[in-house]
Nucleic acid binder design. Structure first.
Length: 687
DNA sequence: AAAAAAC
C-alpha cells in the first residue's frame, strides 16, 4: 500500500509507536500549525487527520492585499541560492523572460530545496509548473553524485541516473512540462526526458539510453511499462524526488493503482530518502487520506487559495445558460461566437476569438467539430468572422499524431475553436484563450474548475460559459452550487429556440438555428449514434428520471441531428442500464449494424444535406476500440461486469424500478444523510 | 453505455 512506502522517512520517531493498521496509522498524531505567513496565503505543517482542524488556523484577516513579499528571480541568483544559468534561462528576455515569482513559486521554493514533502494548492495559471521545476532542477545540481560535465559535446549521463520523476495525467501535459523543464535546464548539463504513451516505445528508450536522464517526465501507463521491464535498461536506483502534477487527479480512483505500482518500482524510501511533491488547483477532501498516506508526516501544505474561496479566478465572469433542449447546445455555441465577432466588427477592443468547447464524451466533440467544420466550409473562408476561425478537435480517440497536431495548432493559432474532451482540461497552457464553453454539467466540481482555468492565465482576461439543459438544474446546483456562476437569460436566445419547428421569422437567432441544423444534419450518422450513446452514459443520472433523460436525448437526435427516429439500444445494454421498461427507449440491434456498414463503406453513401463530406479520419477507426462493448464483456458472467459501476448508481438493482430516482453524484450531494459530512471541500481546507 | 491512461 502507498502508506508503507513512506513509513520510514524523516519522522520515523513518530512512526515508531504508531499502530500498524491503515485506518489508524496517522490518526494518532496531533495537529500542529507550523507557519501562517500571509493574509491570503497559508503554509502549514500537517500532522492531522482530525476534522475541524482548519478552524484552528482560520485567523487570517478577511480582506485583501497579498502581504507576501514580492520576490525576483534575479535575487535568487545573486544570493547564490539558485544556479546562475537557471536564473538566466528564466529571466533573460530572449528566453522565458520572467522577472517576479508568483506566490506559489516563492512559497514553495525554500521548502522544496530544504527537502520537505510539499502539497501545494494554487489557482490555475499561476505558475505551478515552474514552482516545482526550478527547485527540483536545482536540487539535482546540488547532488554531489550528479555529474553534468561533458566529454566533448557528449553527456556522460547514464539512463540509470534519474533523480526525479514527474507524473502527469495526460500525454500532452507531460510534453508541455518537458518543454518548460528543458527551457529551465538549458545549458546546465541536466538531461530531461519524456515517457508517454502513443509514441514509439523503442525509439524513446533508445534516446534515453543514448543521452542519459536526470529528470523523467511521463504518463502512468508508459512509466509503468518501462520501469517494470528490466530489458529497457531504464531504472531509477538513485531517484530521490517524485512529483505528482495534478495530484488529486492522479490519486483518484482511476489512477491511484498505477501510481502505487510505479512507486513500487522506485527505490525503497527507507534506503534512499525520497521527497514527494504534489501540486494542483483542487484538493478535494476525498484525496486527503491518500495524500497523508503518500507524503511524509509533517509535510508542508502550501495554499495560495483563501479558505473561503473557490479556486476559480475572480477575473473570469462565469455564466450559466439554460437550454430548452440538448439540441440547442450547438446553436448556442454558434451564437456566442457570432455575438463576440459582431462586437469586434463593431470596433470594440477585443482580442481575437479563441475558445475551447468542452463536452463530457468524445463522440460529442467529434459531432460538434464536424458540424462546425461543415458550417465553416459554407462560409467564404477568410472573409467572414466565422470563416476565418480554425476549427480543431481533440480527444483520446484520435491518434496521438492528430492529438499533437491539434494541440500544437491551437497553441500557435491566434484564434479558433478547439472542441475538446477532458484531455485538455488540466494543466494545458494554450495562450490567449478568450472563452471556455462547457456543454452539459461537468462530471464533478474539479473538472469544471480546471476546464475554466484554461482561460485567464498569466494575468490575462477570459470568460466562462456553461450550457445546461433546464432539466439538469438540480444536478447543476448540487455539483456547482458553490461556484460563483451567474444565470444569463438574455444573451443567447438560440439556447431557448424551439428546434422542432422550422423558424418562420428572419431574426438573427432563427438564422443561427437553421444554419446549425443544416450543418448538424450533414454529420455522419455513426457519430450521431455514438454521441447519443455517450451522452446516455454521462447524463442519465443528471435528470429527475430516466424517462425524462431518454425523452431529452431522443429529441436531440431527431430535432437537432435531423435523424428519423431514436437509435436502437441493444437489449442487454438497455437492461444493464435499467432502461428495459422506460418509454421511448428503442430496443434492438440495428444501430450497431448501421454503424458497421457505414464504417466499412468509409466514403459515405449517406446523404449529407448539401455539404461536402467531413473527413472521417481517425475517429471511426478508434471508435471500435472500446465502445459498444464488442467483446468487452467476454469472460464476465451476465450481470457482473467487473466493477463497471461505481456502486449505488445502477438503476436496475431493484428490478428495474428506477423511475424518479437520481444518481448520487459521487457523494457531493449533501442530502443523503451520509456520514461523510455535508459536502466535499473545494478548497481542501475543512478536513 | 460514460475523461483518461500501455502494447
Amino acid at each position: 500500500m502507498l502508506g508503507t512506502l513512506r513509513r520510514f522517512g524523516v519522522s520515523s520517531v513518530l512512526r515508531a509507536s504508531a499502530p500498524r493498521t491503515l485506518s489508524t496509522r496517522w490518526a494518532s498524531q496531533l495537529p500542529k500549525v507550523q507557519a501562517l505567513s500571509a493574509s491570503s496565503v497559508l503554509t502549514r505543517s500537517l500532522h492531522s487527520s482530525f476534522p475541524k482542524f482548519s478552524a484552528a488556523v482560520a485567523q487570517e484577516s478577511t480582506e485583501t492585499e497579498p502581504s507576501q513579499k514580492i520576490e525576483k528571480f534575479a535575487e535568487l541568483g545573486e544570493q547564490g541560492f539558485i544556479d546562475s544559468t537557471i536564473i538566466k534561462n528564466i529571466t533573460h528576455p530572449s528566453r522565458m523572460n520572467l522577472e517576479t515569482m508568483t506566490e506559489v513559486q516563492s512559497m514553495t521554493l525554500r521548502e522544496i530545496v530544504k527537502g520537505d514533502d510539499v502539497l501545494a494548492q494554487a489557482k490555475t495559471g499561476t505558475g505551478k509548473t515552474l514552482a516545482f521545476l526550478l527547485p527540483t532542477l536545482q536540487n539535482i545540481l546540488n547532488d554531489p553524485g550528479v555529474d553534468v560535465s561533458k566529454v566533448g559535446r557528449y553527456s556522460r549521463t547514464a539512463p540509470s541516473e534519474i533523480r526525479a520523476l514527474i507524473i502527469s495525467p495526460t500525454r500532452e501535459l507531460a510534453e508541455q512540462i518537458a518543454v518548460e523543464a528543458k527551457k529551465v535546464a538549458f545549458g546546465t548539463g541536466l538531461i530531461v526526458q519524456t515517457a508517454v504513451g502513443g509514441t514509439q516505445k523503442r525509439s524513446g528508450l533508445m534516446k534515453i539510453q543514448r543521452e542519459g536522464c536526470h529528470l523523467l517526465i511521463g504518463t502512468p501507463g508508459r512509466l509503468k511499462d518501462i520501469l517494470s521491464d528490466p530489458w529497457t535498461g531504464v531504472s531509477a536506483p538513485k531517484l530521490n524526488t517524485l512529483i505528482l502534477d495534478e495530484a488529486d487527479r492522479l490519486l483518484d480512483q482511476g489512477f491511484a493503482p498505477d501510481i502505487k505500482e510505479i512507486q513500487g518500482f522506485l527505490p525503497d524510501p527507507s534506503k534512499i530518502d525520497r521527497q514527494t511533491l504534489m501540486f494542483s488547483a483542487t484538493v478535494p477532501r476525498e484525496v486527503m487520506s491518500l495524500v497523508r498516506q503518500t507524503l511524509k508526516p509533517g509535510f508542508q501544505f502550501v495554499q495560495t487559495v483563501r479558505e473561503d474561496e473557490v479556486p476559480t479566478h475572480h477575473r473570469v465572469p462565469q455564466k450559466v445558460v439554460w437550454m430548452r433542449g440538448l439540441e440547442n447546445g450547438m446553436p448556442a455555441v454558434l451564437e456566442i461566437v457570432k455575438n463576440y465577432q459582431a462586437r469586434r466588427a463593431n470596433g470594440e477592443d477585443l482580442r481575437p476569438f479563441k475558445a475551447i468547447v468542452y463536452y463530457n464524451s468524445t463522440a460529442e466533440t467529434k459531432c460538434a467539430a464536424d458540424a462546425f467544420n461543415n458550417l465553416r466550409r459554407s462560409y467564404d473562408v477568410g472573409t467572414t468572422p466565422l470563416g476565418e476561425l480554425k476549427m480543431l478537435e481533440i480527444n483520446s480517440r484520435l491518434t496521438q499524431a492528430d492529438r499533437t497536431r491539434s494541440a500544437e495548432s491551437f497553441r500557435r493559432s491566434p484564434s479558433g475553436i478547439l472542441f475538446s474532451s477532458d484531455v485538455t482540461a488540466r494543466g494545458m497552457d494554450f495562450p490567449d484563450v478568450t472563452h471556455v464553453i462547457q456543454v452539459g454539467v461537468p462530471r464533478d466540481t474539479e473538472t469544471y474548475i480546471h476546464r475554466l482555468g484554461r482561460t485567464a492565465r498569466a494575468g490575462k482576461e477570459g470568460e466562462g460559459w456553461l450550457l445546461v439543459h433546464k432539466g439538469e438544474d438540480v444536478c447543476f446546483r448540487s455539483r456547482l452550487g458553490r461556484i460563483p456562476i451567474k444565470e444569463d437569460t438574455a444573451s443567447l436566445p438560440a439556447a431557448w429556440a424551439d428546434m422542432s419547428q422550422q423558424a418562420t421569422d428572419s431574426s438573427a437567432t432563427s438564422e443561427t438555428v437553421s444554419q446549425m441544423k443544416a450543418a448538424m444534419a450533414a454529420v455522419g450518422p455513426t457519430h450521431k449514434i455514438k454521441s447519443y450513446m455517450g451522452q446516455l452514459g454521462t447524463i442519465i443520472g443528471n435528470f429527475s428520471s430516466k424517462r425524462f433523460a431518454i425523452e431529452v436525448l431522443n429529441k436531440q437526435f431527431v430535432d437537432g441531428f435531423g435523424m428519423e427516429s431514436p437509435p436502437q439500444i441493444a437489449p442487454r445494454v438497455a437492461q444493464q442500464m435499467g432502461l428495459g421498461k422506460i418509454p421511448g427507449v428503442n430496443i434492438g440491434t440495428g444501430s450497431r449494424r448501421m454503424m458497421e456498414e457505414n464504417d466499412s463503406s468509409s466514403s459515405g453513401g449517406f446523404s449529407r444535406g448539401g455539404f461536402s463530406r467531413g473527413s472521417d479520419h481517425g475517429f471511426s477507426r478508434g471508435g471500435d476500440r472500446g465502445s459498444f462493448s464488442r467483446g468487452g464483456d467476454r469472460g464476465f458472467p451476465r450481470g457482473d461486469r467487473g466493477g463497471f459501476s461505481r456502486g449505488g448508481d445502477r438503476g436496475d438493482r431493484r428490478g428495474g424500478f428506477s423511475y424518479g430516482e437520481r444518481r448520487g453524484d459521487r457523494g457531493d450531494r449533501g442530502d443523503r444523510g451520509s456520514s461523510r459530512g455535508p459536502r466535499r471541500a473545494l478548497e481542501g481546507l475543512d478536513f
